[in-house]
Every structure is written in structure tokens, then in C-alpha cells.
Write a protein that binds this DNA or RNA. Sequence first.
DNA 1: TAGATCTTGATTAACTCAGTCGGAAATTCC
DNA 2: GGAATTTCCGACTGAGTTAATCAAGATCTA
Lengths: 144, 144
Amino acid sequence: MKLSKKSEYALRALLELTFAHGKTTLQRHEIAARQHIPVEFLEQILLALKRAGLLSSRRGMRGGYGLIKSPEDITLGQVIRTLDGPLAPIGCVSKTAYQKCRDCPYADKPQCPVQHVMGAVRDAIAGILDHYTLADFAAGSRPR
Amino acid sequence: MKLSKKSEYALRALLELTFAHGKTTLQRHEIAARQHIPVEFLEQILLALKRAGLLSSRRGMRGGYGLIKSPEDITLGQVIRTLDGPLAPIGCVSKTAYQKCRDCPYADKPQCPVQHVMGAVRDAIAGILDHYTLADFAAGSRPR
DNA sequence: TAGATCTTGATTAACTCAGTCGGAAATTCC
DNA sequence: GGAATTTCCGACTGAGTTAATCAAGATCTA
């Protein structure tokens, strides 16, 4: 049930980019310095977020990174999924990356007790993270 | 956000032990066969559950494992915590194993946005798993 | 063109996960 | 008492993941 360092850094980096949104872009080293993140590691995180369509970037002297959408349109669920994979605790209850559970005697019947509980857990986690936007996050408030 | 195989096996093993509770005890190989779990791996799981005070055991010819408390008094939260550690996605929001977050610019102030969201996630997970008993689990129903 | 910056891919050390193995200790049955 | 059976305990292993680090290349601005 753990959040990777990668996702944590991503959230903290996006926090800075949310503050800067509309005003300016930020460079790797600025984000790294403000959030105490190893710059080379941060780099590959920003690249992943870019490939996921959340960030734009510009190379060269006046380069840097910026949000490509407005903070209200990016959820923490999206961010964590792109870096850590599915939110579900177990493959057979994932909605974005379902995987049939091998070796379980209940196979995939809806009677499977594991599926039942973990489905509830998944829904609880996704219920929070998929409604929590970067705007909420930066404001430090609850969503909606 | 993933449940380890260890915890999954533990839940499935406890399912069998719940069915047997009051009637008989079960041996490693019986549980392993019914739930398709590698027997030597299951062993160390059962041992861990025993050390956590959930199971009793007897060695020798008529030996085996049994629940030491009634299924209504064991929650899935307890089980998963003993095998996977804290439920919280990040140390600084754990109630059972709190750890101050190093290198975060917000330190531990209540204003920390990461702490805010992840606290909500932790509460959601624990809210389910700490109220879900083995009895609920075996019945395949929702708790309470 | 020079210098700054993003981009890509490879590499690494440490750690965790999932499972295996061998042997010691306890209990029962003969 | 001895053999069979079962739990107990610790060490070990191979594969994969995590958290970085590094070097070299592409691109942009001044």
C-alpha cells in the first residue's frame, strides 16, 4: 500500500508547476532546489509526465517545463497511475489494468471474498484521488 | 498501492481457518492444497500470524493451526499490517508507524498538501480494512 | 557559434518479493 | 523407546523493483 518516491516527487514537482502556471515556466533545477529532489531523478519524472500529456517543455536557453492543462483538469489519480501503475491493490479489481487472478480457487466469480474487499478499497482510493485535482492539491483543501 | 502475495495468501488461508473454526484445526498442506499456495511459503506466513497472536498451533502427528480468537474479533487491517506493514501510503500519515518525512519542504506542518491527501487516503483504506472482520470476509459481505 | 537546457538510453547499488531448503524441536502412534 | 509426522526457525536464492546516476545527443536562444 505504498506510494513510491517517484510519485511523491511528481506531486511535489507539480505543486511548484501549479503555482507557476499562467505566469512562467520552471526549469528542472529550480523545481529540484525548491523541493529538494535529486535533479537527474526529477528529470525522468518530468519526462514521464510529459509523455503522459500533462506537461509541455522547451529546450535551450530560455527552456523549462509548464502545465499543458489547467490545474483543475489534472487529477492526482492520473499522476500516480502514470508513475506507479494502477491504484488497485490487486490486479483482479483494477478498472484501468484488469488482470485475471491466476491460482485463486474462486477464479473471478463475484463471490470471491478477496475481490469483494479489495474492490471496496480500490473504489475508496480512486474515489479520492480521481476527484482530487492539482488545484485542490495546491490549495491544500478537500475536493469538490 | 499494492497488496503483497504474502498478504493475499494470508487472507485466503485465514478464510479456510475461519470455515474450520470451532470444528477442527487445519494443517499446512490442507490449506495449501485448497488455496493453491506453495506450502513452504505458506508456512512462514502462518508463523507470522501466530507470532502476531492470531493463530494457535500444535506440532506432531495430530497437529495443525487454528484461529485463537473468534472471526468477529480479527480484522483484515490487523492481518495486512502484520505482513505488509502500515496501511498508510506514506510514513508521515501513518497512525501505527509514524515517521517524520525527511527532505519535504513542508516538514510536518498541517499545511503539507501531500500529507493532506494521503491522510485522506489512509483513512479511507483503514476505514474499510479495520472494520472488515474475518467473519464478514468469509460471508463475502460488507461489514457492520 | 557558444552556452544553456531538455532528451534519451544505459548503468548501478541496494533493496524487496516470492519462494526454497535443511534441519531442529515437539507430539503422537506403535 | 523409537519411528513417523508435523510445526518451528533460520538461512539462502533468483528475479525484479526502486532510486538514483551518468554520458552523450538534440535543440533552442543570445
